[in-house]
Design a protein around this nucleic acid. Structure first.
Lengths: 222, 222
DNA sequence: ACAAATATAATAGTATTACTATCAAAAAAA
DNA sequence: TTTTTTTGATAGTAATACTATTATATTTGT
């Protein structure tokens, strides 16, 4: 069985040496995803990662300037991947409403396996995005990093879906607020349902989160 | 002019020695709020705090077990204060809809000065809650800390407002999801409007965030 | 096949962090 | 005034988040 191999290109600003250019680089990325998930971002270190992949701390620093930049890289990779899924899933849908519903589904659903990108486990990556991504942009350096374009992919995803909202209702004044609320909200609800369930109303079986936010969006924009 | 002095009681689990029991303790709390705001939580240390208040690192450790526990303490104080404001603002409102609207206003508006609590600056505290609170519960220890009740005040606030939703529409299935989405969403939008404005549609002057979420809630529950 | 270039590994070192432990001095309570 | 409690000062530890240097592989060009 063959799979379509799609390539996600990440801005050069985010790494010192492109991790996709070598086996070691790919191992750094794939193993770091697993380790951040296992240990949490705080307890994760380049030293531990090096030991775990049979390499050296100093070699990892040749790919990523810091642990923070690695997280930003993963975030960027994740949102590029979501954008690809989004474009793929909404392409050729004629009905504006169906298109928006498909987009919201992509943004709020549980991530499933995707064999197009061999060395990255999207399910685990999704989990660390949910648990750790806020640590990437809740920094004192947010403004300068934003200027450098570190978050442009994420902003583009919000923009794409906001446009779908505006297509349906051109008079709706807050499409960006609505979509960023949905994206961040869906992530939070997944985290809460696991760790602080009294903040949610998630039921076993059906995907409450997708239904809740889909319903919310359509009610709010009309 | 005299002000009503209201006392917020914080669970003993959150501190080693009650910071309200001494001048030093109060200074630790009030100055830590300012310093976390200035430096960000990562760069803030007990050593720097000690130096800044003319005290010693070791003395601060006698009040708080760790920097993380100080943050949890501040979070708990903040939500206790919001709960007090909430009860105060919604008390005696007859109309269920007006009551909920008043509650959403409390949860989403910009914080203003409050002279009832002398040594805590609520405006700065609000800012650090917006920027840093996710770091408190995005930890590997979340489950055990949740069991110990560290987040019960926050959960109670969500519960209170969710009940108001259920009072209006007993058939609405997701009151907790809705209210936690609103609370966290409003915080995020305030952060985004300052640092990642393309994720929002905030306009100068009027309080877009309050209007957006008030409208959202009433549209969703009916 | 061999030199040159490049990538990786190993080691050491630095400043800082997040604490703990100990002891003395100061302040408050009995 | 004695005892207790609180604070301050100092020292120490293991770990973190790096940087710098040098040696050793590995790859590449000819």
């Amino acid at each position: 069985m063959e799979f379509l191999q799609v390539h996600i290109v990440i801005s050069e600003e985010l790494y010192t040496k492109n991790p996709e250019s070598s086996e070691l680089g790919k191992k750094i990325v794939s193993r770091s995803i697993e380790m951040i998930d296992e240990l949490g971002f705080e307890a994760f270190t380049f030293k531990k990662l090096g030991k775990s992949i049979g390499s050296n701390e100093s070699s990892i620093y040749r790919y990523f300037e810091s642990k923070h930049m690695l997280l930003v890289y993963l975030l960027c990779w994740y949102w590029s991947w979501v954008e690809y899924k989004l474009v793929f899933a909404t392409n050729n849908i004629q009905s504006k409403e169906e298109k928006l519903a498909a987009a919201i589904n992509i943004l709020t659903r549980k991530t499933d396996v995707d064999n197009s990108f061999s060395y990255i486990n999207e399910i685990i990556l999704n989990r660390i995005i949910i648990a750790e991504s806020s640590k990437a942009y809740h920094t004192k350096d947010i403004d300068s990093e934003n200027e450098k374009g570190y978050y442009s992919v994420y902003k583009r995803v919000v923009q794409r879906v906001s446009s779908m909202v505006t297509d349906i209702n051109p008079d709706f004044e807050f499409p960006h607020m609505l979509i960023s609320t949905v994206i961040e909200g869906a992530h939070q609800q997944r985290y809460f349902s696991k760790h602080l369930p009294s903040l949610t109303d998630v039921k076993e079986g059906k995907d409450t989160i997708v239904n809740f936010y889909t319903d919310l969006v359509f009610k709010v924009i009309t």
